[in-house]
C-alpha cells in the first residue's frame, strides 16, 4: 500500500514536471537551443502571477489565463531579440547567452520581489482531496496531471498534423533546406519559443499554488526539465512526458525510503538512464 501510494504521488508530481519539460522538449529537443533561463522564466511568470492576483484580486484560474499569453509574449521576444542570433548546430552559444540572462533575471527578480518565498492563494483547492479506495488523492495534483496530459497531446498533435508543426520539424531536420523550400526559420523558431514559454504559464501557476516560489528557485526546475527530456529522449514530447513521470515516481519513492533521499533518487535514476540508454527511452537508435 505504502508503495502504491508512492507511485500515485510520483505520477501526480510527474504531471508538474511534465509541464516544465514540454517547453524544454520543444526548445532543446527540436531546436537544439539550450535555454538556461527555462526555470527562471517559471519563477518570473509565477511572481508576476502572484503580484497580479494581489493587485487585481483575481483567483488562480484567471491568473492562469493571464500568464499563458504573457509567457508566449516573453518567449517570442526572447527568441527574436536574443536566441535567433545564437541558434545553430552548436548549442554552446545559446547556452552561454542564456546562462548570462539567467543570472541577470534572478538578480532582477530579487530587486523587484525580494528573496521572500511567496505563493498563490488557491481558494481552498490546495487542501481538497478525494478518496479513491484506500487512497486520498489531492484534487490540485490531479488537475495538474490532466492539464499536463492535454498539453502533451495537444503539442504532439500540433507537431504532427499542422502546417506549422511540419515547418518546425523541417527546420529542425535541416534549417537551411527548410529555408530553401520557403520556410522562414526565424519566424518558426519565434513561434516555437512562444509556445514553449506559454506552456510555462501553466507550470508557473500550478507551482505557485501547490508550493512556494522565490527568485533563486529557477535552477531546480531547469534541472528537472532537463532530466525529464533526457530520460525520455530528445525530440519526442511524449518522451518528455514519460521522462517527467519516471522522475516524479523516482523522487516520490525516494522520499518514502528516506525524506532526504527523494531528490537524489531522481538524479540517480537520471544518471542510470544516461549510462544505460543515453539516447533516452523513446529515441530510436540511429
Amino acid at each position: 500500500m505504502h508503495w502504491i501510494e508512492g507511485i500515485v504521488q510520483g505520477v501526480l508530481l510527474g504531471g508538474l514536471y511534465a509541464q516544465y519539460a514540454l517547453g524544454m522538449a520543444l526548445m532543446f529537443g527540436v531546436m537544439k537551443i539550450v535555454n538556461v533561463t527555462h526555470g527562471d522564466l517559471v519563477i518570473l511568470l509565477a511572481l508576476i502571477g502572484i503580484s497580479f492576483a494581489d493587485f487585481a484580486g483575481i483567483g488562480p484560474w484567471s491568473v492562469l489565463v493571464t500568464l499563458v499569453p504573457i509567457g508566449a509574449a516573453i518567449g517570442w521576444l526572447l527568441q527574436r531579440a536574443i536566441l535567433n542570433r545564437v541558434v545553430g548546430d552548436d548549442p554552446l552559444p545559446s547556452l552561454i547567452a542564456t546562462f548570462g540572462l539567467s543570472i541577470a533575471l534572478q538578480n532582477a527578480m530579487l530587486v523587484v520581489w525580494s528573496a521572500d518565498t511567496r505563493s498563490l492563494p488557491g481558494g481552498g483547492i490546495q487542501q481538497a482531496s478525494v478518496e479513491i479506495g484506500p487512497l486520498f488523492v489531492g484534487v490540485l495534483p490531479v488537475i495538474v496531471l490532466v492539464c499536463a496530459t492535454l498539453l502533451t497531446g495537444g503539442l504532439d498533435a500540433v507537431l504532427r498534423f499542422t502546417r506549422y508543426g511540419r515547418s518546425l520539424r523541417a527546420a529542425s531536420a535541416d534549417v537551411e533546406a527548410a529555408a530553401m523550400v520557403g520556410v522562414n526559420p526565424k519566424a518558426v523558431y519565434a513561434t516555437a519559443t512562444a509556445i514553449a514559454v506559454g506552456i510555462l504559464g501553466f507550470a508557473a501557476t500550478f507551482q505557485a499554488m501547490r508550493s512556494t516560489v522565490a527568485p533563486a528557485d529557477g535552477p531546480f526546475m531547469l534541472i528537472y526539465a532537463f532530466e525529464a527530456v533526457i530520460i525520455g529522449g530528445l525530440g519526442s514530447v511524449w518522451g518528455a512526458f514519460t521522462g517527467a513521470m519516471i522522475l516524479g515516481i523516482s523522487q516520490a519513492i525516494g522520499f518514502r525510503i528516506s525524506p532526504g533521499f527523494g531528490i537524489l533518487a531522481g538524479h540517480l535514476v537520471f544518471l542510470a538512464v544516461l549510462a544505460i540508454r543515453p539516447q533516452g527511452i523513446f529515441q530510436r537508435k540511429s
Binding site: 502546417r163 511540419r166 515547418s167 520539424r169 523541417a170 531536420a173 535541416d174 537551411e176 533546406a177 527548410a178 530553401m180 523550400v181 520557403g182 520556410v183 525530440g235
Partner: peptide
Amino acid sequence: RLFSGMTVEENLRVASEHA
C-alpha cells in the same frame, strides 16, 4: 537535403505549404 524523420508526403507538403 531532405527532412529526415518525415515521410515522403510530409516532405512534399512542407514545400507546397510555403510555395
